[in-house]
Amino acid sequence: MSVGIQSTGAFFPSTVETAADLAMKTGIPEQVIVEKFGLVQKHVADDSLHASDLAIAAGKQALEGIDPLAIDVVIYFGSPHKDYTVWSSAPKIQHALGATNAYAFEIMNVSSCFPIALKVAKDMIVADSSIQNVLLVAGCRESQIVDYTNPRSRFMFNFADGGTAALVTRNSSVSEVLASAVLTDGSFHDDVRAVAGGSKHFASHETVEKNLHYIDVKDPQSMKERLDPVSISNFEQVIRQALQKSGHTPQDVSLLLPLHTKRSMFKELLRALELPEERAIYLSHHGHMSSLDPCVGLHLAQQEGRLKKGDLAVAVSAGTGYTWAATVIRWLGE
């Protein structure tokens, strides 16, 4: 029995912010934003679209030609910045998609979550013979929580909005999900967070006035000094481990599907794996959408015809906290 991704979906709001627009907001030169940070433009949602709406739009694409009643499980793996706090978006998404035979729940590990969600979906199908189809869905509106006036966090201007989905099925004819590897270094747990809104700093006039509901970095220099020495090596470790468990090496990789990072980190990872840039998807026109990036990359790769029968793709991401994760996918379709 093989378990694989049968179909994908992606949805982006129509409003676009260019590098020139971001230069005006941040004071960072447009050329630096494009060349150093690798961002030409990003999509930004208006007040009519929230994380659940973006996930639903992508889910509808992934289910085109498929009876939603055949879905057994709906899992939301997207941004924790959702329509409401203390609220699960998964039931709303299940209902809107008409997947009324499915139970629905959420998993969340910020930006690292897609490779983990693939592992969870595969493991559920392998462990439970009654599960045939698991729909992974995600939305992101994290452009909304960037404070462009905060020098500690304005480098996160690549945070963008969108939705994505992947239908994971038993005996997929399109792809096979192979092995995964996950690594967590919890010493980074306090470096990045939206300070207010939780139980520690409950929402108040003071938290609003102090802009504490935006994403913030406690001490950027300290985080950089601790993160830079381990980031690439941890990316490389989970990729190599997932490949080894799948019976492969980096030389077998046809396409790397990473999260959006600054260009220097992207190139350094490729060098570590000895992969040319044409064997990777870089989201220069989409930016960073929390956990969505590798799934969006897979969807774009399919649209562009960049995967053929026998190809090996690796979805890899990392999320603050800090967790690195990778999952290997073998392409079965033409």
Rank of each mutant, 00 (worst) to 15 (best):
F235G: 01
D161P: 01
M156S: 13
A138S: 13
S199Y: 08
V110G: 00
R193Y: 05
E106L: 09
Q244Y: 13
S233M: 07
T327C: 15
Y84N: 08
I131W: 14
V32F: 02
S153N: 02
W324L: 02
N109E: 11
A127T: 09
M265E: 13
Q302G: 03
H299V: 09
E206T: 15
H95V: 01
V110W: 10
E225C: 00
F12V: 01
G197M: 09
Q302A: 06
I232Y: 00
F105M: 09
H285P: 01
Q221Y: 04
K218M: 09
Q241C: 09
L292P: 01
C295M: 12
P68Q: 07
G310S: 05
F114D: 00
S173Y: 00
A51K: 11
D72S: 06
M289S: 03
I107R: 00
A45P: 03
E277G: 04
A318H: 04
F77N: 14
R141A: 12
D191I: 02
A20N: 08
G38I: 12
A301I: 09
H95K: 14
L298V: 07
M156T: 10
A55R: 08
S129H: 07
A315P: 01
T18D: 03
W87N: 04
D191S: 14
S254F: 02
G321P: 11
I75P: 09
T207F: 04
